[in-house]
Write a protein that binds this DNA or RNA. Structure first.
Lengths: 344, 344
DNA sequence: GTGAAAGCGCTAACAA
DNA sequence: TTGTTAGCGCTTTCAC
């Protein structure tokens, strides 16, 4: 049985209020002897405050829930994003919960009612990256839950990386080094499904195309008619690099894809690359730079917006774009510290 | 302001209890008309139950917290593990929170008291994989919080994969195919720091050594005097494969490391590999099998144990070892469904 | 400095 | 079939 204030009060020979006050940093109101007695008793008895009761009384949960799909593709969860969210919430004395919702259940109002009753959240961070369902918006509107959308371009209440900018700086980095034949490589989305793929794929490509156009160069997009699965990426990279007008340099959609490209380039003339990732990619060819999509910052900013929405639930906040940063091979920036504030 | 039962009762012209009962599936006690009226009113008003009050009344939070270090190396968080935990908890109508604790704060009793008051958890899943601090055990004992340790070999209250077995079946798979010169490759821990590295490194190697010994073969361990960082792994793999008695086959500590080995083997005779990972690795060489360390199952089992401990907090439960499974290239098993039960 | 009373939103137990 | 009473552990308010 958990220890209550009442039990401590009984043992320390004082009132419940005295215990409550002493344990909540209003101890300076009391005699030193009393303070000591209460604190020692609480420690001895292994007292843990009952947060439910506190929350009931104070009318707020002190909790933020990250909501994702159960569909693995639909909502990836970079560990840095989780860390950014958790750190910022912890620095505000808030807890962080994680829930997944099967897409097909979103229309089941009985199920949703039951689940909503469980959330215990003052606000929601929604990470349905792409192809997320309309009903989600309805539900959030219906129950008036403050929510911020992650990695998703909406006209309000969202935080996402500026992927067009990311594509631009990646490409410009290679152009600055004097390369002309710069290709954009993506194996994750097929030509056919590009329109319905995650916006970051289109945006990074668009940024690349803009930079190429600005330099008066013709863009070269390498992607499959079908999605190129991992076991075929090495072969595909080989094919690309053995053509007569092989690219001099490559912008690769993701860090994971860059490995196969680099491996295919072994033994050939050096192939400078820029890849997008959430942490600097070190391929050992010494010629691969990374455009960092700052997941940690994204989490922190999302929490900041959400807290603002919880304060004034009516207002909607303007979209926030996070600027990716180029990190050249060999220079890695220090990671964010726990609870570190990002200046806006 | 959130909607309360009282407000619904007022609007629907009935008592608070009627509303409570109807909304909690005891609606069959009531007239159909009343049920309808209450449900409609609740829906109209966008009612969300106040979980704090419910929890206060029922004496339990309905929440489990996953506890990790802020030190990124110290506690990795595979997404499948998170998914397994979340799914199992959701199927039991429990919520899932995530908290990190800076190692250096564990001895700060004032800080710990404050943090403990925030947790709102009926039980803890502790994921301090290796080098976790003793104080953690003290704190958990002091406050009598039911806890299960993940990925950690203790004599009770823990769940971890059987990595010796994993090393064995990985090696036996290659020996069965007739290979003799089978090497074990790990770049993540140096020879010097092997003793203090994560137990899975030593255990997988031990399993490999056992299998080799059983077959009357001499084990060959490839690892650096220092840790081999990612940018040097390709070169290291080259070196290994260009020696006179190059290995015929390789057991690689992790899926991530296998990519460099496979890349270095390009153009050389095929190099069959077995790698350890939480999902089948598809390298495109058609010769790489995976020993799956079932993170999802690990999460599910951990939750099962924790629920048992929450039921009877006194008892300690026996350690649970999870058996890794060999998946040969090209055959991927179906992932677990949400809330799916694992038979013991 | 200390404590008594009231009430947060909800539900178990019992009454009508 | 519906409503009343009491109380979960805590904090706000105000009195002593």
């Amino acid at each position: 049985m958990p220890v209550t204030l009442k039990q401590i009060a009984a043992k320390a020979n004082c009132s419940v209020m005295t215990v409550s006050n002493v344990l909540n940093n209003k101890g300076n109101l009391y005699r030193d002897e009393m303070r000591r007695r209460v604190l020692n008793t609480a420690l001895e008895m292994g007292y843990r405050p009952n947060n439910s009761a506190r929350a009931t009384r104070q009318g707020r949960y002190g909790n933020v829930t990250l909501l994702a799909s159960t569909h693995p593709q639909q909502s990836q969860l970079p560990i840095l994003l989780m860390g950014g969210i958790e750190g910022k919430l912890a620095s505000e004395d808030l807890r962080f919960s994680f829930a997944r919702l099967p897409d097909e259940k979103l229309t089941d109002s009985e199920y949703m009612f039951k689940v909503l009753g469980q959330w215990s959240a003052d606000g929601l961070l929604v990470n349905y990256t792409h192809g997320y369902p309309e009903q989600m918006l309805d539900i959030i509107a219906q129950y008036r839950i403050p929510a911020i959308w992650l990695n998703c371009r909406l006209d309000h209440d969202c935080v996402f990386p500026d992927d067009i900018y990311a594509g631009r700086i990646a490409t410009e980095n290679l152009l600055r080094a004097g390369h002309k034949k710069v290709a954009f490589v993506d194996y994750s989305a097929s030509r056919a499904k590009l329109a319905s793929a995650h916006y970051s794929i289109r945006d990074r490509q668009a940024g690349y195309e803009q930079a190429m156009a600005d330099a008066g160069l013709t863009p070269v997009i390498v992607r499959g008619d079908d999605q190129v699965h991992s076991e075929h990426r090495l072969a595909a990279s080989y094919r690309m690099l053995s053509e007569d007008d092989r690219p001099e340099a490559v912008v690769a959609y993701s860090g994971a894809q860059s490995i196969e490209v680099a491996a295919a380039a072994l033994g050939l003339p050096p192939l400078p690359m820029v890849v997008f990732a959430d942490t600097p990619i070190r391929l050992g060819n010494g010629a691969t730079d990374t455009v960092i999509v700052p997941q940690e910052e994204l989490g922190v900013r999302a929490v900041e917006l959400l807290l603002r929405k919880i304060e004034s639930p009516g207002d909607s906040v303007a979209p926030v774009q996070i600027r990716p940063k180029l990190v050249v091979a060999g220079s890695a920036p220090a990671p964010l510290k726990r609870g570190e504030l990002i200046s806006p």
